[in-house]
């Protein structure tokens, strides 16, 4: 096809066709994967795997650790993202780049770095608390998700007109009070969306978790670890059960985000 042929109204159709085809292929790709997995499922072993003590333990452990890690990520991420978005200070761009690291490096590398830290004099004292233990799962999930949480929260704070805070200051509110009474309510939808995405990301975390906390059944076995252990022991039915649990949780999280975004405040 020549360049001339894709100009004009005909060219628009070709362009639209190309983009929609890419989208359709992508949707097909995931539908085929999910369909193949379901077709592979034998429902008897699937249900017994789903209700097994090990999987129920993994579900409880994953939900608990992901929730604690998300709460920590929000407790630290909200003030940190606000500082990055609204304040000027020396070394801001360095800190900003450093916080991108957990997003771009492999989680397993992050887990390895944490493991090594706990074997240095600085970390040796609290080694037994985190290494191959449940708090290690929380720490790994926190370390992997905090970068994402801060990115999402920062973009929310970036979108808030600083004049709202300024007006509230002139109405008698201190900076801290203006933040809690004005900025947080304005950021409400962004905060909810960031919390859900961070939680979903923590729930699916595997690389750093398995490196730091190990993969001991009924001790540090989270849902992603359960998939790994099931495949390692060729228990496909159990692997599929866990994958479907994760798919279901992800779907619920996405529906919730859509709902929140759809109710957004037009600022």
């Amino acid at each position: 096809m020549t360049v001339r042929a894709i100009k004009g109204p005909g060219g628009d159709r070709v362009f639209k066709g190309a983009t929609v085809s890419a989208l359709a292929l992508l949707a097909l790709f995931f539908a085929v994967i999910l369909g193949a997995m379901l077709s592979y499922t034998r429902w008897g072993p699937f249900l017994s795997a789903l209700l097994s003590e090990e999987i129920l333990f993994a579900v409880r452990l994953s939900l608990t650790t992901a929730t604690i890690a998300t709460a920590l990520a929000m407790a630290i991420g909200i003030p940190a993202a606000y500082a990055l978005s609204q304040m000027q200070f020396h070394g801001k761009s360095l800190v900003d780049s450093l916080l991108d690291l957990p997003i771009v490096i492999s989680p397993i590398a992050l887990g390895a770095a944490l493991l090594i830290f706990f074997n240095t004099p600085a970390g040796a004292g609290i080694n037994s608390l985190f290494v191959f233990a449940v708090p290690g799962i929380v720490l790994a999930q926190f370390a992997v998700t905090i970068g994402l949480a801060i990115r999402l929260l920062k973009s929310t704070f970036d979108g808030i007109d600083p004049r709202y805070e300024q007006v509230s200051r002139t109405l008698g509110y201190s900076k801290a009070k203006a933040f809690t009474r004005v900025t947080l309510p304005l950021a409400r939808n962004g905060l909810i969306a960031a919390t859900i995405l961070t939680w979903a990301r923590a729930l699916g975390e595997f690389g750093a978790t398995v490196t730091l906390a190990g993969a001991t059944p009924l001790k540090t076995e989270t849902l992603p670890t359960a998939i790994f252990l099931s495949l390692a022991s060729a228990d496909v039915a159990r692997a599929i059960a866990v994958v479907l649990i994760l798919v279901l949780i992800a779907a619920v999280a996405l529906v919730l985000i859509r709902k929140v975004a759809g109710r957004g405040y037009p600022l």
Binding site: R169, G172, Y173, V182, L186
Partner: peptide, 20 residues
């Protein structure tokens, strides 16, 4: 003095009413 200690009424451009 910080703005909250001045007690001056301020109406910014476009009013900036709290939407919540």
């Amino acid at each position: 003095l910080p703005p909250e200690a001045r007690r001056l009424g301020y109406v910014p451009q476009d009013y900036v009413l709290f939407p919540f």
